[in-house]
Amino acid sequence: MKPSTRRRLFQGVLYAIFVIVILVVVFLADWDAIRTNFFNLEVAAATFPEIVVIAAKNTVIYTVIAFIGGLILGLILALMKLSPVLPYRWLATGYIELFRGLPALLVIFGFAYAIPIAFQWRPPGGSVGAGLIGLIVVSAAYIAETIRAGIEAVPKGQVEAARSLGINPTWTMVSVVLPQAFRIITPPLTNELVILIKDTSLLFIAGLALGERELTTFARDSLTSLANATPLVVASLLYLVITLPLTQLVAKLERHNKRGR
């Protein structure tokens, strides 16, 4: 057999497997049951408008808060990790290793319960607020490593040029290094933002009041109350409605920034 014939035969087999698997799934599935349980328009209609005006809105709000908080704390940690002061480096390294090593769910749970007890203080937003602090704490650990890598990727000549012009270390960092670092890390930061959108679903462990529920919690509750899985599908679609435009926007932003590289 000629190599080209063998290759074509192999591809044919792959296509055949694909078609067979699809057919088996299609024949074995109970389409009526699927339609009534997952794609039930009446049930879907019953979740509106709350699933958008409460659940999706809360998902977005929690994501924005956690991302901004994570960026600020992550930046501080990254600068600590690059600091010439040894204890700062230890602290940052310890923090990052600790919170990257723990399940986010556990940290959120811990913060939601521990903060009000430990500080005799209820953060704004009550238990969601405390849970959000947990989410910020976790995302900051990942974002810190990303920012540190970005800072280190800025060529040394950039710092030398700025310092040789008499710009002090702080302004060099703020006006020369960080703007370039953030351009470099736009793709991994987008990745972290998308992960964060989905991780807001872990906030349920903090205990959410009715108006505080985000998409996943809302969909789970609806699943129980309506005895139908359609809300899960609606929630899934809404997650995509949030993430897809976002990744598109960042891709566009990145193309725009190419000029200044």
């Binding site: 000549g157 030398e160 040029a161 012009l165 710009i167 370039q180 200044g260």
Partner: peptide, 24 residues
């Protein structure tokens, strides 16, 4: 410098004004 080391994220004008504003 041999490798110029211009600030790539700034325009030419930005390159020339940054240190004047920040350091001078």
């Amino acid at each position: 410098f041999q490798q110029f080391n211009l600030f790539p994220h700034l325009t030419v004008l930005g390159n020339l004004t940054l240190a004047q504003q920040r350091a001078k």
